[in-house]
Design a protein around this nucleic acid. Structure first.
Length: 156
DNA sequence: AAAGAGATGGTCT
DNA sequence: GACCATCTCTTTT
């Protein structure tokens, strides 16, 4: 079943950023982050939730953008059943919820989101990025807390 | 209605 | 032992 949503909140993570998984160098978990751009980096958080990032740096850079929230646009029935019991505004307004809503799991670590054949893709829906994004500090981290690398649209 | 506390487990230092 | 997101329950406004 096809599901989709518009990305409305992201956070940036770089190699020199103490809050980034890539900060301490390549390892088994973050290997995809150090690979070529356009791939999905999925990791397990709290041993329970998955979080999805898109690699944005050049091959070897260790740079990615965490997908923090989407507004569901396609396959609402499927998303509601995956997120049973939650209100519509709680369907995908967090990195773990987003993965559950879209059905993203550790199996999807490393998929090319620019490849037409991939099960998960990032596409242009015709709505450009907001000209007035809300820019602020990132959440859910304890290091690098002052970097204003969180970007959110309040006009989804 | 809003804010806080506690539980949950895999990956790394 | 630190780090991370979410849900449920409780407390305070």
């Amino acid at each position: 079943m096809l599901v989709a949503g518009r990305i409305v909140e992201t956070e940036a993570y770089t190699r020199t950023d103490p809050a980034s998984h890539s900060f301490t160098g390549p390892n088994a978990r973050n290997a995809v982050m150090f690979g070529p751009p356009g791939r999905l980096y999925v990791y397990l958080s709290y041993g329970i939730h998955c979080c999805a990032n898109v690699v944005t740096g050049a091959d070897g850079d260790g740079q990615a953008v965490l997908l923090r929230a989407i507004v569901p646009t396609v396959g609402l029935d499927t998303i509601r059943s995956r997120r049973r019991g939650r209100s519509d505004r709680d369907l995908a307004n967090g990195p773990g919820k987003l993965c559950e809503a879209l059905g993203i799991g550790l199996d999807d670590d490393g998929v090319d989101v620019c490849d037409r054949r991939s099960p998960i893709r990032v596409v242009d829906d015709g709505v450009g990025p907001p000209c007035d994004p809300i820019i602020g500090t990132r959440v859910g981290i304890t290091r690098g807390v002052d970097l204003p690398w969180r970007f959110r649209s309040d006009r989804p």
